[in-house]
Design a protein around this nucleic acid. Structure first.
Lengths: 236, 236
DNA sequence: CTGTTTTTTTGATCTATATCAAAATATAGA
DNA sequence: TCTATATTTTGATATAGATCAAAAAAACAG
């Protein structure tokens, strides 16, 4: 991991409104920025943190793409999420002061490190920041419950459709194409996240391709029929 | 729902250390108590709140037992959790200012209502309280990710074993028996939570009974072999 | 660029859990 | 208490998705 510090740049960051500074005034952003955000690079395949590491900081994804996964005693792993620009890594570690999952970069990435102690101090000074952060934590709870719904009561096709539509939405919110997706993760990662085997993921992608819902070429996926996918999710 | 206000009692509450006041000084508890905690009763089968309701308050379960569930468009429902004394209801609503699930009492219960605006103000005054609350939110994220692990990579027997062991632990932490469980929810509720059908839940309970892991008599379950259940969870 | 490793696709088969059905219990209301 | 309703159990059968296997394609290292 390359810990070389680049200059802090919240103020000029293009994804500022998707990240922790959302809704803060310029002065407030400056404070947040100068006091806490250290930028660092994580190369593809490297871990930002691992299960058991002491918790010091949250990390905001600046550029790139991560996955988080929990490992079960017996080797089984469960991917718990994929994070892209503006999303916060490490929220789960606040509860025990230890990281409870691994965070691995799926492409060359950069993150902004936010020392949590100092962040909490700043939260005491800026009620605005604290209020937003409460919402950030709550939003993660909502996201997780969405995954519970997906794993607990949707069939495999519905799960994959929901996954793709969700990814597309998040890319679109970042001014990237909402229909041309480049999947940074393997079929196995997707399967783990969705509670399916990689073969099942592959088969369903092929089926969606045959049904003209998608155009699938390896990890390049183009959504051809957003409507059709949405209908699938609702369990038509 | 009976909105009659009883006197606030955080200070003398037996589960204080399992609830929001955990770790606060007596003076701090008094402040929390007097400024925000309204006690109210929810009868068995009644809703504390429903999906779409405006978010005003968090609720700490004082006595009783709740379930929360999300409803999917097409009628499918997913139980997202069961809450007992000391646990907080409504954390998911902070993100959107609307409740995104239903909370239903599974037995006659009482809750302490905590106006969230005032709670946030108090968090600004008491960094201690705010710090604890950050941990509370993070703990909910950890819990949800545990459910994701369960739904995504465990088999039906492992899920049910994990569910029972978790319930037993939480009862034990509340000075109730950790082996004599009274299940307040139906087999269908358990199944929904675990991503299984009620028949499967029933069959596995019967199987555990036959294997002398449990003694099952309707909703009364006695854990006979905690070790055995733990071994199952680890995927022996 | 070339050989090696990893990932993906597709087919054949198996199995854990769902579904359908009906009897047995338990719970709640009059 | 008795009656109606809801829940639970158990059996027979079906099926979605897993597993095993092998070829094809892509990614990577030297």
């Amino acid at each position: 991991m390359d810990f070389s510090e680049l200059k802090s740049v919240c103020g000029g960051c293009t994804i500022r409104e998707l990240c922790l500074p959302a809704g803060l005034s310029d002065e407030e952003v400056l404070l947040l920025d100068q006091h806490m955000a250290h930028r660092q690079v994580v190369k593809k395949g490297e871990s930002l943190y691992r299960t058991g590491d002491a918790f010091r900081s949250l990390f905001a994804v600046s550029t790139g793409f991560f996955k988080t996964s929990i490992l079960h005693e017996d080797g089984r792993a469960q991917v718990t999420g994929f994070q892209m620009a503006g999303e916060i890594l490490g929220l789960d570690a606040i509860s025990t002061d230890q990281h409870i999952c691994d965070a691995v970069a799926l492409e060359d990435s950069a993150v902004c490190e936010i020392t949590f102690d100092r962040f909490e101090e700043l939260g005491q000074l800026m009620s605005n920041l604290q209020h937003r952060f409460n919402k950030t934590l709550s939003r993660e709870i909502v996201r997780d419950q969405g995954v519970m719904l997906l794993l607990g009561s949707m069939r495999s096709e519905e799960r994959l459709a929901a996954f793709l539509v969700n990814l597309a939405k998040r890319f679109a919110a970042r001014k990237q194409s909402g229909s041309e997706l480049v999947l940074r993760m393997t079929r196995e990662d997707i399967g783990s996240y969705l509670g399916l085997k990689l073969e099942t993921v592959s088969r369903i992608l092929s089926r969606f391709h045959d049904q003209h819902l998608l155009e699938v070429k390896g990890r390049n996926v183009r959504i051809l029929d957003q409507q059709g996918l949405n209908k699938l999710i609702e369990g038509s």
